[in-house]
Design a protein around this nucleic acid. Sequence first.
DNA 1: TCTAGGATTGAATCATGCC
DNA 2: CGGCATGATTCAATCCTAG
Lengths: 366, 366
Amino acid sequence: MKTKTPKVAPVLPLNEILAGDCIEVMNSLPEGSVDLIFADPPYNLQLRGDLHRPDNSKVDAVDDAWDQFDSFKVYDSFTTQWLKAARRILKPNGAIWVIGSYHNIFRVGASLQNEGYWILNDVVWRKSNPMPNFRGKRLTNAHETMIWATKTEGAKYTFNYEALKALNEGIQMRSDWVLPICNGGERLKDDNGDKAHPTQKPESLLHRILVGCTNPGDVVLDPFFGTGTTGAVAKMLGRDYIGIEREDKYRVVAEKRLSRVRKYDKDALAVSTSKRAEPRVPFGQLVERGMLRPGEELVSLNGRHKAKVRADGTLVGNDIKGSIHQVGAHLEGAPSCNGWTYWTYKRDGQQVPIDLLRQQIRAELN
Amino acid sequence: MKTKTPKVAPVLPLNEILAGDCIEVMNSLPEGSVDLIFADPPYNLQLRGDLHRPDNSKVDAVDDAWDQFDSFKVYDSFTTQWLKAARRILKPNGAIWVIGSYHNIFRVGASLQNEGYWILNDVVWRKSNPMPNFRGKRLTNAHETMIWATKTEGAKYTFNYEALKALNEGIQMRSDWVLPICNGGERLKDDNGDKAHPTQKPESLLHRILVGCTNPGDVVLDPFFGTGTTGAVAKMLGRDYIGIEREDKYRVVAEKRLSRVRKYDKDALAVSTSKRAEPRVPFGQLVERGMLRPGEELVSLNGRHKAKVRADGTLVGNDIKGSIHQVGAHLEGAPSCNGWTYWTYKRDGQQVPIDLLRQQIRAELN
DNA sequence: TCTAGGATTGAATCATGCC
DNA sequence: CGGCATGATTCAATCCTAG
């Protein structure tokens, strides 16, 4: 948890805040080692000397009056560089979240695509208490945009669908999230009572992202760590974090904040899981175990079709034999069919879905 | 109102649908002659296979030839060209609105900036009834993004602040708009009863844009006219329109539609306002926002039962886990239970119903 | 004529694992 | 890597049909 300047790190420095330029620091970390990156890069295009040209020469912005074109070009170059560095250290199935406003998000999104990232969703953070537009000259700027992307197309990213659905009271989570901006006791203040960082993100935002897109023990990296919201929520949720921050004063604030954060207990960290994670049970086991007898008749849920169980765990219908899925699909004229929920059997005068028998077997396995 | 092929037009052809490629047609129009452009360009969706709903019905996807591009490079080149042509025909104080999704909007936004447009706001259209994510693999894609920009920085654009404020029940209009997708009677059908255009936009969206950003008599151009929603709303609101559409079949539909549209009289413009129902607040938000901590214990109102809060907004009781309602019902042996009034948490030595926290959140939303 | 319940559908980058 | 079998998965609004 100490602040230190990174060398080439053979081992991943976990739960530390690394000092320095995020591109250099990321380049010093081992390839393919991070599960999730959350990045809140600078929004402003009035750059303050924290950017580098493509040839890595440092831009001295303080005295320069760039025209718009140069300014965009420099910002794009900076964006491309940190996205490249981030992509290198991501695991093959890792993912990235980037947040921005209309000033920079279009350039960031285009760069993401150009670098080979694969966008999964753009997510709108809809602020419940935004600052009004005082002059009445535009619409209230009431949202920011986040982009969620994998390292490559087809990557097997982490998505805790059921957990997010539970967070949203049983309805699948949408791409627009209504959450308040960070203020009150959560907003960190400096010794003068001023806000310690101009754009501190709310912990609720990171909570949702980390619950949805990581598992306990995953490594979460934030290249623009600021006051350490990403680290704080990661710690609470039992994830490991790596922060990178160039400004001393923010690192100091973040260290102090993180030292006070406590991890939630184990029960609290468990989240709802989807059925896919459950062990696979072949239908034949139901026959082998005598839960269903060969020759027994199954009836479709809608009552329209019947089939007989055979000793090898296949079904025979009127003019078809095959798996519970194949026979169901054929009888319904559908391209596919989940036989587990389609077929029922009779017990005590009741029609019961065969999936109940599978659940019995699964319960034994736990 | 006739369909015709444009020549170099010395006079602006008003309230017509021009046939042809929008770049060529715009280049044939006089410079600096249009007040507002609304553009709904192809999104460049890259759909892989067929998508079926859980009930095995097939989703009617956007697979039209006009949405196919070979690469980002080709799409960027197309975007740059039509944005250039659009910018030439805009009046100095004119403005543009472009709509898109995450597939294309980042490229469009970056091109806008590169071409010298000045972004005023990005506006999120939050769909009240989006298509769900059937496979549970991502977040419901529940919004589209619009960008509002002027021709140059510092231009004196039209913005009817008070009109939009009135549309929003007296509160300053925000950058996120909740509107339903286009269906029901407004959705145009072809002779087979299929949708006439895969991506028809709702008139409510154009209504808000044209009320907010144009005045009666202004000229509104739409380079991707489709079924003519822009023209229809412009006509209703007493603005002049110019449509450009390449596909014969869409022009035919749009002509027919426009011929039926009547300009509103003043009385018809008055709309009744309805009071919104109380917004739904998922219990998970209390956890995300830190109002309740994962691991914290809740006690039932009668003091007989306890349960622990989990990170995903579910509860764990003695032998049960689920939503606040499910766990309450189980513990009471009741068929149902309102968890909001059943559960209490401890603050300052007092047991307080969790519903109080929901009321806090609702208060923020107003 | 009204109500209840089933069917339909919307800009979608929508599966995984075994052989 | 390709092909194939197995199996997981939906919200809101409108339209249609039966009673």
